[in-house]
Structure formats: structure tokens, C-alpha cells
Design a binder for these strands. Structure first.
Length: 495
RNA sequence: GCACCGGUGGCGAAGUGGCUAACGCGCUGGUCUGCAAAACCAGUAUUCGCCGGUUCAAUCCCGGCCCGGUGCUCCA
């Protein structure tokens, strides 16, 4: 079955296809690097990651371009306030952005494009539009796009230009444009602003032209998929289409992918509501990166999701169950008592669920249904292991399901402690005081110290000195370390 | 105001014109254990926002209403 995805352009689910060598050429609007990323940003990037990982699982090659918007009004404003050159200002947040992406296990796109490194291409694009009088220069030196020249305007967002008459909302006279809806391609320099000297005049690019130029530079005038947050559909993506198609006379992106916004504790996330969280805020509260990833990815991208702290805890518990299961299957390999005979019923179920897993992802990236199939396998295999009907031949197929799961979800390997540690180091360097005490306590004990205490406890228990053993167990529990007395020995993990 | 999307158990959240309405967490019970914890198993919505309609049959289709969200205004 082919991978199907909702296409905003046309508003229906369509097969996803690559027009060149089975390599999916996709462009995704990346961050504007003026501050630390918040969880809403990361929901979008996480679902882009699900898309690319799923595409690869289905056999596509990938050429994924993501831009960094490193010049815009907010950047100029903040850099000026901080008395820094914009490049220096944005470098800090770009670095932070990629640290966060790494923490969340979001894969790097094949190409990272920066607006400030693509100015020449933007200028050339505007000049091409100007040569057909689609772009025009206003009196203040800014360049605008003449929307009247693109009859298809509105085809992505379903806007009807008839209903947005010139001057209906905006006093045209305030602008030096020919029509109120015309948007800026190039903004003339204002006093004190960072600007580029170009044949168009001295100034800086408009936001929309940046993405058109970067996408076409790396993917050509026509490519497979373009994505971003739902708010970008209009006007940003609509404007990209208008500029690009007027310049190239070819369809721009064939498939448009938009990720819906999330709510936080049932409300729109906003600073004024007090429910605005960056990834770093959550890490410092003691939540794990893997739990954040799993939660954000578990609700399909086209659904509004409600992000809650309770949900984060649940997500961490669910991951714990999966990791425990993965270890149990791994251990089964060296269990000599394991029956040789294949449990055919279990095997049939595992195969059925693997198919269901793939089908769920094919069906517009239904991550909720996909993970359900994996939990079905976990339960069935645990039952078989409990009643000794799990055969050696069942190991590989079950591991195959876990691999397929992790190829997209990527939460089975525990890297959380390192991520939290880095977040705490950053917070201390920044002088932040809002670090969860239990996080600091947990990081105050090393793995070696834990191992030593556990060894001491094991010795005490052998001598049936349970009082001492329990005291050590309690001491470790206070530092967030859980001890498990299994048949094969003692194991531990950080909570 | 106009346009679009959604409202499913304690919570998160799939899904379908008729088969027991997934899955996860939580909770309750059990297995295991020196005791625990952890782990594992089992049970846990006669019901899918409200009111009408279509249909032999609707949570799923249609209409209205209420509520939440998004866009229309360079927020992912």
C-alpha cells in the first residue's frame, strides 16, 4: 500500500510520490532564530521528522531542505536591543535550536539553508518578477508583488480574493503599494537597520521570498512536498506559491503538509496565559526528552493535541514499559531454557501487527494507531513469555516490530540523563534558578556510586541483613534510583 | 462577522453505517518477591457534546444549536 498524506492543496488525502528517482524532495519552513524554541515549534518539527522517517521506512530516498530565517523584524529588534550584530545574535539561537532538535531526536535535514546566505538568489528572483512587471518598486524603495497578476492566488488556503477587496480593511493610502493585498518582496532600509546593497536597492528581503528562493535553489522550481505549521498556509505559503509560480511558470510544490497547533492544558499556548513553555523549561522541570518526543508525536499531526503535564508523565511511563519489554526480548536471546519451537500463533499475530503498524503510518501518518499495534505485540509476547510458550524463533520477528517502531518513534534507547544534564549545565550558565530540585538530586549521584551501593546491598541481603539492604534501597530511591530484584539479579534505573 | 477543523471512559487518544468502541496512562484485583518496589497478567465507556432528520440499523451521514481551536492581522 502506498503512503498517503493529506494535501492542503486540494484538501484531500493523496498518495505521496517522488518525481525524481524515488527521492522525496521536500522543503520545510524552519525556525526564525530570535529566541529559544517552544513546544509548539517542536511539535511541527517532530511531525516533519515522523514524515521523513516514515518515508524512509517505506523506501523513499530523501532530500529534505529546512531553512533558518536569520533576518526578520524581531531579529533586528532584539539584536539592536542587545547591541549585537544580527549574525552574532542569531548564531546563539540557531545553536540552541539544533541542540534542542538533537535532544528530541529530530533528524537533521539533508540541507540547512540560511536566508542571509541566499540573498543573491532572492534578488535574482525578484528581478525576474520585475522583468514581467509582476514585481514593482514603490516610492520608498521597497518592492511588492502584484497579486492581480496571479489569478490562482488563494488556491492553497481557499481564500477568495473577491471577498478581500482592496481597501476593505486597510487604508490603501497608508501604503505605497498599488493594491492593499500586495505583499513585500524587498523592504527598503530603515535608519540603523542591517541591510544589503543590491541592484534592487539597499534593504532586506521580505519573509516570503526567502523561502521561495531557498526552496528553488536546492530543489529546483518544482518539487514534491512543502510543509510547515498550520498558520503558515496563509499568507506565507500562498505568497510563496504566487511568487514562485509566476517566476518559473511551473507548479511549485505538489504536496502541502501542515501540522496543527497544540493546546497546553486545554488552552492556546501564550505568554499571557502563563502556559508558554520552551523545551528547556520542560527539561528543567525534570521531564524527559523522550517523553516529550513521544507525547508530541503520538497524536497525529492533523489533530489538535492537548499538551498536559499529566500527559508527559503518562508518556514517560508508556516508554518505560516499551524499554522494559525490549530488554526482556533481548535477554530472551541468552535464555537457554527458552523453547526452540516457534509459537506460531504469536508469530501470526506479530506479522499481522507489523502490517497494521505500516498501514497506520501509510494512512496519513496515523501515529496513534501505529503505536497501538506495537503495544498489542508487547502484550501478546509478554503473555507468551510468562507462560513459557515463547520460542526462540519468535525473538527476531518481535525485534523486527520494535525496530520498525523505533525507526519512526525513536524512544527506546535511553539517552535522557545526558540531555537533562546538558540542560542543567546550560541553566546554571545562564543563571536560571528554576531547576527542579529532584533533578539536581538525581544528578548528584554517579552511576559508579549507584553500582557500589547496590553491591553493598546485595552482600547485606545475602547475609539476610534486610534492614541494611532496605536502608540502601531507600537512600537510592530518594535520589530517584529504582531497584528491581529480578530472578537474574538486581537491575536499576533512574526514575 | 466570514471560512475551516474538532467535541469519544478518570485523563490522553484512535476508529467504524450493523461484529466485544483500539491503544496508552490511571485505578482495582492477582502473579512474583524476605518485605516492598519494579515487572507481568486480568478487570475497568450498554456508550461516543445537545436536539432533530435520513436509514431495517448512526457515535460514524444530513440540518440546527452549544462549546473549543485555527485562519482572515509576517505566531509552529
Amino acid at each position: 500500500m502506498a503512503m498517503e498524506l493529506f494535501n492542503t492543496l486540494g484538501s484531500r488525502v493523496e498518495p505521496l510520490s517522488a518525481s525524481e528517482n524515488n527521492t522525496l524532495r521536500m522543503y520545510c519552513c524552519g525556525p526564525t532564530v530570535y529566541d529559544y524554541g517552544h513546544i509548539g515549534n517542536f511539535r511541527t518539527f517532530l511531525h516533519m521528522d515522523v514524515l521523513r522517517r516514515t518515508a524512509r521506512l517505506k523506501g523513499f530516498g530523501l532530500k529534505h531542505v529546512m531553512n533558518i530565517t536569520d533576518v526578520d523584524d524581531k531579529i533586528i529588534r532584539n539584536a539592536t536591543a542587545a547591541n549585537l550584530p544580527i549574525g552574532e545574535y542569531t548564531a546563539k539561537y540557531e545553536r540552541a535550536f539544533f541542540e534542542d532538535m538533537d535532544a528530541l531526536r529530530v533528524e537533521r535535514p539533508e540541507v540547512i539553508a540560511r536566508a542571509t546566505e541566499t540573498i543573491a538568489e532572492m534578488v535574482a528572483l525578484i528581478e525576474r518578477l520585475a522583468s514581467e512587471d509582476i514585481a514593482y518598486k514603490a516610492e520608498d524603495g521597497s518592492w511588492y508583488f502584484r497579486i492581480a497578476r496571479f489569478p490562482d492566488y488563494g488556491k492553497l488556503s481557499g481564500k477568495d480574493l473577491e471577498g478581500i477587496e482592496d481597501g476593505a480593511r486597510v487604508d490603501v493610502d497608508e501604503y505605497e503599494k498599488d493594491a492593499a493585498r500586495d505583499f513585500a518582496l524587498w523592504k527598503a532600509v530603515k535608519p540603523g537597520e542591517h541591510a544589503w546593497e543590491t541592484p534592487l536597492g539597499t534593504g532586506r528581503p521580505g519573509w516570503h521570498i526567502e523561502c521561495s528562493a531557498m526552496a528553488m535553489k536546492h530543489l529546483g522550481p518544482s518539487f514534491d512536498l512543502h510543509g510547515g505549521g498550520e498558520d503558515l498556509a496563509f499568507p506565507h505559503h500562498e505568497n510563496e506559491i504566487a511568487q514562485s509560480e509566476c517566476a518559473s511558470h511551473q507548479p511549485f510544490a505538489r504536496h502541502w503538509f501542515h501540522v496543527r497547533f497544540l493546546l497546553v492544558e486545554g488552552k492556546k499556548m501564550s505568554k499571557s496565559e502563563g502556559n508558554f513553555y520552551t523545551l528547556r523549561d520542560l527539561l528543567l522541570k525534570g521531564y524527559r526528552a523522550s517523553a516529550i518526543r513521544f507525547l508530541l508525536v503520538s497524536v497525529p499531526y492533523r489533530h489538535q493535541m492537548n499538551f498536559t503535564f499529566e500527559g508527559l508523565t503518562e508518556s514517560a511511563n508508556a516508554i518505560e514499559r516499551l524499554r522494559t519489554f525490549a530488554r526482556r526480548i533481548e535477554a530472551a536471546g541468552s535464555n537457554t531454557a527458552l523453547p526452540e519451537a516457534l509459537n506460531a500463533d504469536l508469530d501470526a499475530l506479530v506479522n499481522e501487527k507489523l502490517t497494521a503498524y505500516g498501514a497506520a503510518l501509510d494512512n496519513d501518518l496515523n501515529t496513534a494507531e501505529a503505536r497501538a499495534a506495537v503495544f498489542d505485540v508487547v502484550r501478546a509476547a509478554n503473555i507468551a513469555l510468562d507462560n513459557s510458550s515463547f520460542g526462540r524463533g519468535n525473538i527476531a520477528p518481535v525485534q523486527g516490530v520494535l525496530q520498525a517502531f523505533d525507526a519512526v518513534f525513536d524512544v527506546l534507547t535511553d539517552r535522557d540523563a545526558d540531555v537533562s544534564k546538558a540542560a542543567v549545565a546550560w541553566a546554571k550558565a545562564e543563571g536560571r534558578a528554576d531547576i527542579a530540585p529532584e533533578l539536581l538530586v538525581a544528578q548528584s549521584i554517579s552511576d559508579a556510586e549507584i553500582e557500589a551501593l547496590i553491591a553493598e546491598r546485595t552482600d547485606a541481603r545475602k547475609l539476610r541483613n534486610f534492614a541494611r539492604g532496605d536502608a540502601i534501597r531507600n537512600e537510592l530511591a530518594e535520589k530517584g534510583v529504582l531497584i528491581e530484584d529480578g530472578k537474574a539479579g538486581v537491575t536499576w534505573k533512574r526514575r
